[in-house]
Design a protein around this nucleic acid. Structure first.
Lengths: 151, 151
DNA sequence: TTGTAATTATTGCACTTGCAACCAGACAGT
DNA sequence: ACTGTCTGGTTGCAAGTGCAATAATTACAA
């Protein structure tokens, strides 16, 4: 039974606040540039980095931290605008791939120019190299603990 | 025009991932304990800490980082279950207060026992005191920069 | 004072989300 | 092959979200 002092509680609140404000700001930057919302980028970049630029929907769900239902819907939206297309899976005929299209690749690049600038300006600019090490270590420890627990 | 190297990009992704996983976990803990969702706690604690346990809806929106529309709806839900009640504002007859009820106070306390344990276990446990100082400084700088910009 | 602008809260609408139910295909044991 | 179970993806439904429009009140300036 861990204890929680008031400084730790404040830091947790600060963490939530910073996340909310940063994400809000990034979303506004996308919108202002006439670009699609946040989550679209995640799917595009995940596909871009995958072999053959394609991934099973269930794998996408895991990577994007979104449940299957919403991956289906997100894929619907990107497919409707031509940024990805679906492809049946040979090895498992239940399954579907999402495949990055040329238009999808171009959209990813366009979004990245906006996104990179936002991340740098709102987030990275305020971190020294030492900070980055501290953050990485602490965040990794949190994730590792969550993963162990669920085993 | 700030530059963004790949380590910084990874850290940003890590930041988003950690936030998503932690919030997901906290929400599950609430649900498993048969308690209302996350956002309800924020409103309850905000009211508890306010003078006379009441706040204008617009002030709540600012504190909770939620737009006015959704504060109205969130207040609807808490009012329907008796955790808050609305009160007309004397000084500005357009306005409404949200007032914490006795049931609301008790709910806040019940949720806190679960919440405090979750924060400690998933978040604070992985931070040394030095980490806490680093986090606080960096996060505060990010917020300050956002606030300055909008002036 | 009077008219215009700004502010507070709410509502209608379109869209997104999560849960549970569902279907088709895979898989394992008999 | 036959049966029951599991898995991948989709869909219906109920609920939550953001945007734009609205009504009521206040603030202010000519």
């Amino acid at each position: 039974m861990a204890e929680l002092d008031s400084a730790q509680n404040s830091l947790w609140k600060l963490f939530l606040t910073v996340h909310a404000r940063l994400v809000e700001q990034v979303e506004q930057d996308f919108k202002q540039a006439g670009l699609p919302p946040f989550e679209w980028y995640d799917m595009l970049i995940a596909l871009k980095q995958a072999p053959d630029q394609k991934l099973r929907l269930s794998d996408l769900a895991e990577v994007l931290l979104v449940n299957r239902t919403n991956v289906t819907r997100l894929a619907d939206r990107l497919e409707k605008t031509g940024l990805i297309r679906r492809e049946v899976c040979q090895f498992d005929r239940r399954g579907a791939y999402a495949v990055l299209t040329q238009a999808g690749l171009e959209m990813q690049q366009k979004m990245w120019t906006v996104y990179a600038e936002s991340i740098a300006q709102y987030f990275s600019r305020h971190l020294t190299q030492k900070d980055e090490i501290t953050f990485t270590r602490a965040f990794s420890a949190m994730l590792a603990a969550l993963d162990e627990e669920s085993v």
